[in-house]
Structures are given as C-alpha cells and as structure tokens.
C-alpha cells in the first residue's frame, strides 16, 4: 500500500530459495562437493561460468561459493567447499550440517567473474579456486578457444576434481607443491600476449603473484576472483565527506567520512541491494553517472575501474566533491 508520504514502496531483492542437498560427496581432502536441487524439482535460475551463490548458514553467517556444475544443467547446482579455519566457522558448518537431505537457504546466483569472449585463455587455479574454472574451461572448450589451465595445490590428495580434468589431456598442468614446487608463473606470464585473457582464482598469495606478473600485460587482460577482501593499503589520509546525488529521484545527501555510500543511499530511500559489505561479492554494483570514484573493492579490474562506469557502493567512495549514481 502507499505510505502517508505518497511514495509507493518498491522492494528489490535477490533471488532467494531453500534448496535441498541431494548429494554431499568428499572429492578431496577437506573438500566436499554439494549437489543442490529444488525440493519441488523445479528448474533453478540460469547462470553463466564464474557465477557464485550465497549460502545463508545463519542470519549473520553468509558465505559465497562458486557454481562448478554446467549452466546447461538447470535442475541442479554443484558447489565445492573447502574446510578452512576461518574465524567464524562458515565452511566448518557446511561440512558438519549440510549432509544429504539437509536444506539450506541460498541467494543469487550473481556473477562478477564473467568469462569474456576471446580466442585464448590462461586459467590459473590454486586449491579450491578450481571451482569457478570448471564451467569456464568447459565453455572455452565448447567455443573452440585455445586455452590452458595451471592448477596448483599442496599435494594431489588435496586437489579436487582431478578426475574430471583428465578429459582435457595436456591442456591441464597439475602442479602439486610436494611434487613439483610452485607453479612456473614466469614461464606462463613472463611475456604479455595480446588477445589472451588470464583468469585466476585461489589464495591471496597466488593472486598477488599473478597480479604482479600481469602488470605489464594489456589493460583488461587479468580477471581475478578473491575468496576474501583484498588487503587495502593503509592510507594516512582520512576519508572525506562528499555529496551523493541519486539521479533517479534527485535526492541529494552528504556522505560523512564514517558512513558508506551504501548506507547513505539506503537512508536516502534508494533501492539498493547488498550482501557481503566487504567489496567482494558484487551485489551492490551501481552505475556511476558522475564523480571520480575511489575504488576499494576486490571485484572490478583495473580497466573497469578506469572506465568509472560502475562501483561497489559498500566499500568504495568518491575522490571528487560530488558523486552521482544511477539509482
């Protein structure tokens, strides 16, 4: 119903559903692969390689996991979950409670690691970072692209999905650390290659190394997905306040140093979506109309940051005095 102010409520939310764990299979040391289906046998929303979902494990415990099945399989999703000593026990809870027959609330899918069309790909996965790569390489293979996968891990028994990667033969290089040391990133990335896109997912150490090696590559070549927020350089400059204009309603508010753009927009009555609030999940991506954005997220690559078309309003701010958003 319309409120006393004469404005009509509009509620924008992400797709949310209660799914059934149809199968829970240990696929490597400390890695469980869950197959999720609709309890009523309904078709699940479509997605594309690189997409992830939220598992809502408790009201305040939400974890993101990449979909690692095939987008063509629309009756079931698969995710791979590594048991990690994370402080709040998200993955531990998945391992302990999401057994066959259990149900779990999911949100999404959403995708901030999309596979952009090109002729040649280098995929680099570390440990459980293999999960988004599985649908990506299947799509690259189907599209007839030239591709290679470098897959590093501690030792073979800890590396998930090796049997299904065997079908790709020598396109896949498996590098267990106890047998072969660290992956040869210099050999792979030492010479920048025009038209080749690099996709990397894994622990922060691998991502930073790949990022450094790709510094001389053409802008837009490197696509990364992080498990956690990128470490930010501590700035000795304090955040400043700026003006936020919501283009669609014309509302203008001041964003003080200690308030996020997301919170300011929400308080000003905008329909904004948010999930992780750490700049990693991409849910709050918002179109920028005007303003010099101070990007602090772990989603956008350098080229996307420079384009200044979108920003993650949960963590990013504005360097200029005025930020205009298309909301």
């Amino acid at each position: 119903m319309s409120g006393a102010t004469g404005t009509t409520r509009t509620i924008v939310r992400e797709h949310e559903a209660e799914l059934l764990v149809q199968k829970a299979e240990v696929v490597a040391e400390d890695v469980v692969a869950l197959t999720l289906v609709s309890p009523a046998g309904e078709t699940l929303p479509s997605w594309s390689p690189g997409a992830h979902i939220d598992l809502v494990l408790a009201d305040d415990l939400v974890r993101q996991y990449s979909l690692c099945s095939s987008p063509g399989e629309d009756g079931a999703w698969r995710i791979g979950v590594l048991r990690t000593p994370d402080s709040r026990g998200g993955s531990q809870r998945v391992h302990d409670t999401l057994t066959e027959g259990a149900t779990v609330t999911i949100r999404g899918p959403r995708n901030h690691f999309p596979l952009v069309a090109t002729s040649t790909y280098l995929f680099i996965a570390g440990g459980i970072g293999i999960t988004p790569m599985l649908p990506m390489i299947a799509q690259a293979e189907a599209a007839g692209a030239n591709w290679r996968l470098l897959y590093g891990g501690r030792h073979r028994a800890s590396m998930a999905f090796l049997p299904e990667l065997a079908q790709y033969g020598d396109r896949v290089t498996v590098v267990p650390q106890d047998e072969a040391g660290f992956p040869d990133l210099d050999g792979l990335l030492g010479t920048p290659q025009e038209g080749t896109l690099v996709y990397c997912c894994g622990p922060e150490g691998l991502l930073s190394a790949v990022e450094a090696k790709c510094a001389r590559w053409p802008s837009g070549s490197l696509h990364l997905e992080r498990f956690s927020a990128k470490p930010q350089e501590i700035s000795d400059v304090l955040d400043e306040s700026f003006e936020l204009v919501l283009q669609q309603t014309g509302v203008s508010v001041t964003v003080p140093p200690d308030v996020s753009v997301f919170q300011a927009a929400l308080d000003a009555g905008a329909n904004v979506l948010g999930s992780c609030m750490e700049g990693i999940c991409g849910t709050c991506e918002t179109e920028v109309v005007e303003g010099d954005v101070d990007h602090r997220d772990s989603v956008l690559n350098e080229e996307e940051r420079a384009a200044n078309e979108f920003m993650m309003i949960c963590v990013s701010r504005c360097k200029s005095k005025r930020l205009v958003l298309d909301i």
Partner: peptide, 13 residues
C-alpha cells in the same frame, strides 16, 4: 498509485 512492487533479481533474470 499502484501497490508495492516486489522485484527479484538473479544473475540473468
């Protein structure tokens, strides 16, 4: 004035 609009989004729909 129409009643509340509920919009649900996923990656592609």
């Amino acid at each position: 004035e129409p009643p509340a609009l509920e919009v649900e989004v996923s990656e592609t729909a």
